[in-house]
Design a protein around this nucleic acid. Structure first.
Length: 414
RNA sequence: GGAGGAGUGCCCGAGUGGUUAAAGGGGACGGGCUGUAAACCCGUUGGCUAUGCCUACGUUGGUUCGAAUCCAACCUCCUCCA
């Protein structure tokens, strides 16, 4: 491993963010001698990013913390075309208003970790639609087509894999590479951006952009990728029982977000602490050396720290406290997901479970009751005809519903 | 343009006239064991106003008492030929 001299690369290296880097020595040099401007591209297909995007966001965080300028590139233009990589169902195409709304939602998370503004190291958010929509096919081909050889494009893993497996690769997809490369060039021209970062699966695309920038603009540029993030047991990052692990509070409560990280597998604790928190490395080393039950303490620290970064310190502490009451005291902590329901008509448990979001249909609720997964005020229920009434309301004025050991909701009588 | 093959539930994949809401596996969820972990074992894995009804095997029609299964057209993909 290279011994990096710049703060930026040294920190990324120490914390496990680096998978590949195009010219480490030169980039290290550049990062020492001045401000580098770097970008990462993000999808804007939803109003929030999810946990899978946390890793690139943290890279941008460290970039800015070490005195450089982050650019968050929103793929507004590419979103309009639709991502072709999903084979059968082509993603629904979004219109300008939706994309606009999504970008606004996503920016809320960036704003928690990055400082935006006009200063030399302030972050900026740009939308590739700004330049992609202006492109003229013929002049684009003439200006940039000569810089890409099919021979070379065919040699990229992303392409080779598809061809080897005899899966179709459409011309549209094939062109994505070029559009992405063009983004890099455009950012270089507009903002002096010299580094693109991304997941290891983006390596080929990034290299293309780097070379295009060098050929057309004559500027040295760099590529840096991070490892593809999966849990120790191989699952993709960012899915939980209740769906995607959104970063925005209005999509997923801080408490549920906290729970996601609290449930990290043992084998991932150290890695995640390095990647997703800003704790000093010696502190992390201490935490990950804990064993058995004690490691749970490290998981709580992990959950609270990540939650504090993405939401706020106050919300993180509240989430930790809610979890403590719920799991360590078995109480009905008021920070649990809460919903209101009328008890006047003595609603059936099935209906209420669906209303709470713990089950998505009566049938599912029924199965869960049969499977012994449902509790009302911590008492198992086996009767699917069970009805709720005011007599079920506990001393705190709510009814606690549980699905399994981990998911709870409070019913507030209305 | 010609000749063949394929399209099944979240995914992979069996089924080739009724007993099929559809084998098996994966994933996911729940239970057990634990530490709100992993591994392992067990269970569940269309919907509903529910001894019944509705939706579902690429799409639309047809044959039949009855179709995922047979027929026709169409759509999509793959292979070979031109």
């Amino acid at each position: 491993m290279t011994q990096y001299k710049s703060d930026f690369l040294r920190i990324l290296e120490e914390r496990g963010f680096i998978h590949q880097c195009s010219d480490p020595e030169a980039l290290d040099e550049a990062a020492q001698n001045g401000v580098i401007t770097a970008y990462i591209g993000f999808d804007c297909t939803a109003t929030s990013l999810h946990a899978g995007s946390l890793l690139p966001i943290m890279i941008l965080y460290w970039l800015q913390q070490t005195g450089h300028k982050p650019i968050t590139l929103m793929g507004g233009g590419t979103t309009k075309v639709g991502d072709p990589s999903g084979k059968d169902e082509s993603r629904q195409l979004l219109n300008d208003e939706q994309i606009e709304a999504n970008m606004a939602g996503i920016k809320k998370v960036f704003a928690k970790l990055l400082t935006f503004g006009d200063g030399p190291t302030d972050a900026i958010m740009v939308n590739n639609d700004d330049w992609l929509k202006e492109l003229n096919y013929i002049s684009f081909l003439r200006d940039y087509g000569p810089h890409f050889t099919i021979n070379r494009m065919l040699s990229f893993d992303s392409v080779k894999l598809r061809l080897d497996r005899e899966q179709p690769l459409t011309f549209l997809e094939f062109n994505y590479m070029i559009l992405q490369a063009y983004d890099f060039l455009e950012l270089n021209r507009r903002h002096g951006c010299t580094l693109q970062m991304g997941g290891s699966d983006q390596w080929g695309n990034i290299i293309n952009g780097m070379e295009l920038t060098r050929r057309v603009a004559g500027n040295q540029a760099y590529a840096l990728t991070s490892p593809l993030l999966t849990t120790a047991s191989g699952a993709k990052m960012g899915k939980s029982a209740s769906g995607a692990v959104w970063l925005n509070g209005d999509m997923l409560s801080p408490y549920e977000f906290w729970q996601y990280f609290r449930n990290t597998e043992d084998a991932d604790v150290g890695r995640f602490l390095r990647l997703f928190t800003t704790l000093p490395l010696d502190e992390i080393a201490r935490l990950e050396s804990l064993e058995g039950v004690e490691l749970n303490e490290a998981k709580k620290v992990l959950a609270t720290e990540v939650c504090a970064l993405v939401h706020s310190r106050v919300e993180a502490d509240e989430a930790a406290e809610t979890a403590r009451k719920t799991f360590e005291e078995g109480a009905a902590a008021d920070g649990l997901p809460t919903f209101t329901h009328d008890l006047g008509a003595q609603p059936g448990l099935l209906t209420v479970l669906v209303a709470s979001g713990l089950a998505s249909s009566n049938g599912e609720a029924r199965r869960h009751i049969k499977g012994g997964a449902i509790k009302v005020n911590d008492v198992s229920v086996s009767d699917e005809k069970r009805v709720l009434s005011v007599s079920d309301v506990n001393a705190e004025g709510v009814i606690k519903l549980s699905f399994g050991k981990k998911r709870h909701a409070l019913l507030q009588p209305s």
